[in-house]
Design a protein around this nucleic acid. Sequence first.
DNA 1: GGATAATCGAGACGGTACGTCGAGTCTTTCC
DNA 2: GGAAAGACTCGACGTACCGTCTCGATTATCC
Lengths: 194, 194, 194, 194
Amino acid sequence: MPRPRSENARQSVLAAMRRALAADGYDAVTIEGLAAEAGVSKQTIYRWWPSKAAILGEALLEGSLPGADVALPFSDDLTADLRGWFTLAGENLSRPENVALARALIAVTATDPERGAALNHRFADPVVSWIVARVTRAQEEGDVRPDVDAAAVADQFLAATSYSALLGRPLTAARVDALVELVTQGIAARPRGR
Amino acid sequence: MPRPRSENARQSVLAAMRRALAADGYDAVTIEGLAAEAGVSKQTIYRWWPSKAAILGEALLEGSLPGADVALPFSDDLTADLRGWFTLAGENLSRPENVALARALIAVTATDPERGAALNHRFADPVVSWIVARVTRAQEEGDVRPDVDAAAVADQFLAATSYSALLGRPLTAARVDALVELVTQGIAARPRGR
Amino acid sequence: MPRPRSENARQSVLAAMRRALAADGYDAVTIEGLAAEAGVSKQTIYRWWPSKAAILGEALLEGSLPGADVALPFSDDLTADLRGWFTLAGENLSRPENVALARALIAVTATDPERGAALNHRFADPVVSWIVARVTRAQEEGDVRPDVDAAAVADQFLAATSYSALLGRPLTAARVDALVELVTQGIAARPRGR
Amino acid sequence: MPRPRSENARQSVLAAMRRALAADGYDAVTIEGLAAEAGVSKQTIYRWWPSKAAILGEALLEGSLPGADVALPFSDDLTADLRGWFTLAGENLSRPENVALARALIAVTATDPERGAALNHRFADPVVSWIVARVTRAQEEGDVRPDVDAAAVADQFLAATSYSALLGRPLTAARVDALVELVTQGIAARPRGR
DNA sequence: GGATAATCGAGACGGTACGTCGAGTCTTTCC
DNA sequence: GGAAAGACTCGACGTACCGTCTCGATTATCC
């Protein structure tokens, strides 16, 4: 019988967080500022979120983190598939607000590894799964050496993405190609029979 | 002719910063806490450093950042050389205080890319130079394909190091080997004549 | 509809001000000290008072400034009435905390005449009114020369009070009598017809 | 053979104090400001003066406090003599820098009665002596009642002067006349024989 | 269709840290 | 040894946010 939580307020806060992130960066975001910007009282924020990081997490989930929204199909070309995903990630990071989101995630993780790692997993895991699945299939098809650790491959792509976002270096086509080629060459099965 | 700057105070502040980083993380470091811990007045800190990040920078330079102190000689084995450096980086990151330093650097960069990038360069550049030089020699010797971008190779190692530090994942021998192998295979010249 | 101002905090601050004045003098009073002593946050003080002087003003009004609380009745004897008030003022100034209050008022006025004059008026005006009324009645009754400026008479008493408080000279009965006599003689109507 | 104290520096400091007083008031004067304005090092100030108040004292003595420089001759007319001095005091107080000096003296006294009283005496005593001497002569000549306390008379003039300076009320001719008349009437010998 | 109970905005509260200013002391070099 | 310069420690300044705590006003249900 009580009054239910206001979805309205919730969305306002998340939107305010996204705007503030893009404008000033995670560190400069204050709960007071968020409340004012969202037209919401501080109490309402504290009622529903335990910390600034939690709001960020929700804002991140509600939005789209660069590279996270993978629902890419598998083609028959491993190189093309990897390039496809990595290119997409690069495009996401070409939008400043997405860089801001990524940096916020990094900042939280650097500050509070516990919480940050959890958040990271939520975004990284689907990507890891997708890459691992794709690489594994390639292994089954004999295109990739069987001793290759698919997870390590996935990791490399995520590390490169994170590092680029952190340093603000755009993932240009050249850089995408370079890494994709390095990796695919590195894991390719040796030409049999020679 | 005025009284010269107190080297004593300077060292106290840097030491306090390092201790505080290891203890509570960059975010929790306060200028007031630093001053108290260092037995120095706030004014002295503000006189000589424009920001918390600047103190971190100096503390970092004065100390040793994991993986930064490369003065490794080249052997005849590219794989061994790369593994050598990467192993060293991993060992550095096995010490918690070094993880704290690395995370602080990441946090600063995520928060203030301008300043952070500058700091990053000071640590990354020597490593990049070393790796590029080594890979370039390998190219000259025909062990690495000439179209490989040596800088991209260096980048991958740094990205992996940074990402590991961020997530607190130790760079175990297995992980070191996996990446080194992936990269060396990826850049290796195709067996000629066939 | 927000939470209303805490009367509790307000009183604590004023009490702390009064205690601090008596203990160390106006100049030595600090907002921080007041806040600590009152068990109140600095912000609360800054929220409600624009300056230390404003707190003093309120503390003064809420308390009683020596000589300010005149509700003395008129008798038929002008001299007795003036002596009555002036004696009362002297008694008030015999209490150290009242001297401290008076000196604080003087210090504020010497430092910030604008604000100080306003405060002064709040305390002086009732006294001036009372004295002027009493002297005027005496003029109407023919006991005081009609050309006497009643306000100047009042002024003399206030000046004497203020100067005594400033120099810390107690207003003894002898000094009270001397001034009262000097004034009453000075304004007395000349014995008529003779 | 040590280097003697620089009279130059001393004068610069005193001049700076006088300028600062007139410009911003005693409270706003800082030792650092004084040093800068005087082109003198802080150490030089601290070497020669124990406190801001001491500098004020010296500046006051070196200059002229309103009403302090009495070397007035006695005429045969008590009223005229008193009016003469009081008028002079009023004229001194018509110059803003003198008001500033007087207020500074009051501020010091209100803040530090000990030191302030000492300073006050140095300025008030000659005046008191002069007035007492003049009134005493009038008593000897039978123009003033013998039971009148000459010191109390002097006190009244000083109190009025101080109070006027404090409140910033100019000592106009009218106010001067009113007080002089009140006092002279108050102390006048009753017309004898009648 | 009213009672009721958790919601909401507003913003006051005790705190901690900020970055600045001035106090008074100390140290160096120059004269 | 006096003096300018300015670094030093210390403590207060006034501000910004923190997270908690009333307030009165506002909705949904559920009786």
